[in-house]
Design a protein around this nucleic acid. Structure first.
Lengths: 216, 216
DNA sequence: TAGATTGTTAATCGATTAACAATC
DNA sequence: TAGATTGTTAATCGATTAACAATC
């Protein structure tokens, strides 16, 4: 598992671990719920209880965002929400391109929640001429041949792969060639990328494996 | 994080760790590719190289399936594929019901790969009367009111949640009430379930958080 | 003040890796 | 036989948890 090299940045800050980074969106989602009830402050204990974690873990995770809590009262809900959003880069939108306008690809093109996570899919690509030129959820589907050109012109860094398993590596290679450095891969294939490119695998097979095992 | 209690079974067998369990489908996918090239045997070293893991880790993971390798030659590709499928319960199909026939739900209803993972979504449910009665990718959409009844009658154990965030917990409660013991949750909400119920969270927000961080 | 809660340093626990003997 | 590879036992490493001092 190729650990991505730390993006330097503030050298004083310890780099956050992947598990911790993955928990921050969970806190955010819960805090927004809490905020809507009008609560002003919240403690780690409360968050931990709600999310089935330990208070110490929550406190350490929150510390990464450099927010300071107040003993006895905890953290300002509003400030904490903002701190997490800042830390995760949700304030500025990051543009992404999707390759593979099939079933799943189309669904993702219409998945509004992405915007809340600072991600905006601006267009799709497919090799199927029948799909090229169509519009899915307000987003245009381009010919795959134009991917490299468009990516470079718009300086897009994030690519989403929703093609079939057997062309996943090929599409990944094309993305890397085009300057993409972050890939969200929905195929069950482990794709190989050079150093400096980050891949997140959304592996439904793995999740299902755990579910099935639990019922047998 | 509530560790699920070990499903007893063969007491001699060490229970597999979650990370290991999640890697097995990756091996399977790669092995099928290898098998299609006609290769007879394969070594851990080869698998590890291909998937960016260490050979020792691969060997330990494979050991869970109780297959035996031969020094010098490695494992029979075919036998290994079968062993993993057996271990993951992919031989017999597990039926699932999906709640929330929106964008994402519909895409999942048409996602053929699920069958390869031993999962078959047999029907969908929605509270939107306009959707009730329609057919999506050959699967019927029922009124949510009928969920409990149908689940119990067919003794379904797996539920998939693709509703909006704010009704996720409600749907989860309903599933648990109906006898569902394994839930695949696509909402960004951490749902609370009683002991004995396994939840797998497909958290796109977390994956995106890692990607965005890598490019900033 | 007393007590709840934060923040930090030390201990634990589990997964991964290393070392090495066994074997085809 | 020699060497590659498996399988197992020990060492390492990193994340989580515990302990405790600081503070509002």
């Amino acid at each position: 598992m190729n650990k991505k090299k730390e993006a330097a940045g503030d050298a004083a800050l310890k780099t956050i671990s992947e598990p911790a980074l993955k928990r921050l969106p969970l806190y955010h989602q819960y805090l927004k719920k809490v905020h809507s009830t009008g609560m002003q402050d919240i403690s780690c204990t409360r968050i931990a209880e709600e999310l089935n974690l330990t208070p110490i873990l929550v406190r350490k995770d929150i510390a990464y965002t450099s927010i300071q809590g107040k003993p006895k009262t905890g953290y300002s809900v509003e400030a904490l929400i903002t701190a997490i959003e800042d830390f995760l880069g949700w304030k500025n939108t990051n543009e992404a391109l999707l390759v593979g306008a099939g079933n799943l690809g189309n669904a993702l093109l219409g998945y509004r929640q992405f915007n809340e996570y600072g991600l905006s899919i601006i267009a799709a690509f497919d090799s199927d001429k029948a799909k090229v030129g169509t519009t899915v959820h307000g987003k245009k589907v381009f010919d795959i041949d134009r991917f490299e050109n468009i990516t470079q012109r718009l300086k897009i860094k994030i690519g989403i792969i929703t093609v079939s398993a057997d062309s996943a590596q090929e599409v990944s290679d094309m993305m890397v060639r085009s300057g993409i450095t972050a890939i969200l891969n929905f195929t069950p294939v482990k794709i190989s990328v050079p150093d400096g490119v980050t891949v997140q695998q959304v592996n439904l097979a793995s999740s299902i494996a755990i579910l099935i095992r639990s019922i047998e």
